[in-house]
């Protein structure tokens, strides 16, 4: 900056920097087609966006004919939405691809996350095993939200807790990813659970 006055260009820069909110993230995980994108879209204040990472798989080997190394590339997409709270906090919700081969993406998105919602579909309960395993191993606070698809047999929450081999402290709840009030409740329960898991004091209960 050439200007000598601190309240000109430089001052503006400081002003902008001071207004930077704190970014927080929550991961929405679960198997294929379980409602991750739906949940992100239901809660987001802006149209959900998609971020892409390009994977290069160099293990494919060398092309016999040309001797040129052949690489395959895969694009991994992740949906995310945003919620702004009081101008000083921004919450990002990331819907991560459920396949285990995308671990690197999970690592990136889980690092520093407030917590995770694992969506489960009772018709394919085992699809959420990798997500449950992952967050358990990583120590990321998570809750399991059971999406109620039409035609699915109704399970008891305790039954699901048992089938997933979850510790008694992991909350399991029903949800409908298409409904805002349901998603809100899931996220609030997750935040409360995350506070408890991190040893923070409980907030005073609040009347509805």
């Amino acid at each position: 900056m050439v200007s000598g006055r601190s309240d000109s260009g430089g001052g503006r820069r400081d002003g902008r920097a001071r207004r930077m909110p704190t970014a927080v993230k929550i991961v929405i995980a679960g198997g294929f087609g379980v409602g991750k994108t739906t949940m992100v879209g239901t809660v987001s204040e802006t149209r959900p966006l998609r971020t892409e990472e390009i994977l290069t798989d160099e293990s494919v080997g060398v092309d016999d004919v040309s001797g040129v190394e052949r690489k395959t590339t895969t694009t991994v997409a992740m949906d995310f939405g945003r919620l702004t709270f009081r101008d000083d906090y921004v919450l990002y919700l990331f819907g991560t691809p459920g396949q285990e081969r995308f671990w690197f993406m999970w690592d990136e998105v889980s690092l520093g996350a407030l917590g995770a919602v694992v969506l489960a579909d009772t018709r394919r309960l085992s699809d959420c095993f990798p997500s449950v395993d992952y967050f358990e191993r990583r120590g990321t606070p998570f809750i399991v939200a059971v999406n109620c698809f039409e035609g699915a047999r109704q399970y008891d929450l305790a039954e699901i807790q048992q089938a997933l081999n979850l510790g008694p402290k992991v909350p399991v709840m029903l949800c409908d990813a298409r409904r805002l009030d349901s998603c809100k409740q899931v996220l609030i329960d997750l935040v409360l659970h995350a506070m408890k898991s991190r040893g923070l004091p409980a907030l005073e209960p609040q009347g509805a």
Binding site: T22, V24, L83, Y89, G112, I188
Partner: peptide
């Protein structure tokens, strides 16, 4: 963002819960 460190700031949780509510 400061990974993990911020996650013990109770104000953050309060703000997120209030915002969600």
């Amino acid at each position: 963002p400061e990974p993990e460190a911020d996650m013990h700031d109770i104000r953050l949780y309060k703000a997120v819960i209030d915002g969600l509510r």
